[in-house]
């Protein structure tokens, strides 16, 4: 039982029209890991996250969470099982206060029922964790992008996940904010939450990920430690060759 992967996918495949967005991908994430998912634009990274969180339905292949098949469940069930996510383009509840955003997570997403007072206390402490406690009563739509992304993380954590899917948490942030986001991710890992993240900021990925999976045209082309990935010829050919030099000033 101890060796069982937290999350595991077998031959995960999804077509859009005739195009394979994700094709025959096998992957796993172990407890306590920070696993990175990289690949050029359109490689299928977000699609894979959408399949795991059931934003889109899996047609072929299987996804297991703690050994239990979860593909086919609805998004709210997945969340209650212990998988939370953030979104590539932020999806906060703009008209609700920052506290209410997080409160929704503790009231609805947590596996155990919380009393309102407990949920409130937990939401407040999570806002502190994410560095947003000053803005509790501000409508979420009024926050800066960086703060909205932190709010999404706090909301996701409020559902008491065992696994957190972070979809481009750092996209659109400035270097200071990226440093803050990296710190936040390691703090999340220290809470005992496993992290599976999509990111374009390569330096950040190299620093914090224990293992990296590379997708290209919907297929997994490499997997390994950051060092192995950085040294892999296939990866350099299809991905790093064009992206890193272009994207890293």
């Amino acid at each position: 039982m101890c060796n069982m992967h937290v999350l595991e996918g077998e031959r995960v495949t999804r077509y859009f029209g005739g195009l394979a967005a994700v094709s025959n991908v096998d992957f796993y994430v172990d407890r306590g890991e920070i696993v990175g998912l990289i690949g050029p634009n359109g490689a299928g990274k977000t699609t894979l996250f959408n399949l795991i969180s059931a934003a889109i339905t899996l047609k072929s292949g299987v996804i297991r969470f703690k050994g239990e098949k979860i593909s086919g469940l609805r998004p709210c069930r997945i969340c209650k099982k212990g998988i939370a996510r953030t979104f590539q383009s932020v999806k906060v509840f703009p008209g609700m206060s920052v506290l209410e955003n997080v409160l929704l997570g503790s009231l609805f997403g947590a596996p155990a029922k919380l009393s309102r007072a407990d949920a409130r206390a937990e939401a407040s402490s999570l806002l502190e964790f994410a560095g947003l406690s000053e803005m509790k009563t501000v409508p979420a739509g009024d926050l800066t992008l960086a703060s909205q992304k932190r709010l999404e993380v706090a909301r996701a954590l409020a559902t008491r996940p065992e696994l957190l899917l972070l979809d481009e948490l750092m996209a659109g942030l400035n270097p200071t904010e990226i440093a803050g986001a990296m710190e936040l991710i390691s703090k999340i890992r220290d809470r005992g939450v496993t992290v599976f993240m999509v990111e374009h900021v390569m330096r950040a990925m190299m620093c914090i990920c224990g293992r990296i999976i590379v997708l290209h045209h919907g297929e997994k082309i490499a997997e390994g430690t950051p060092q192995e990935i950085a040294a892999s010829k296939t990866v350099i050919d299809v991905y790093l060759g064009e992206q890193v030099y272009a994207g890293n000033q």
Partner: peptide, 25 residues
Amino acid sequence: SKFGLALRSIGENEDAAAHTGVNVT
């Protein structure tokens, strides 16, 4: 009630509500 909070979250962003554990349907 928390039910009202869930309703508002659906109006604000239905996808996010579903992924935050609200049984939107």
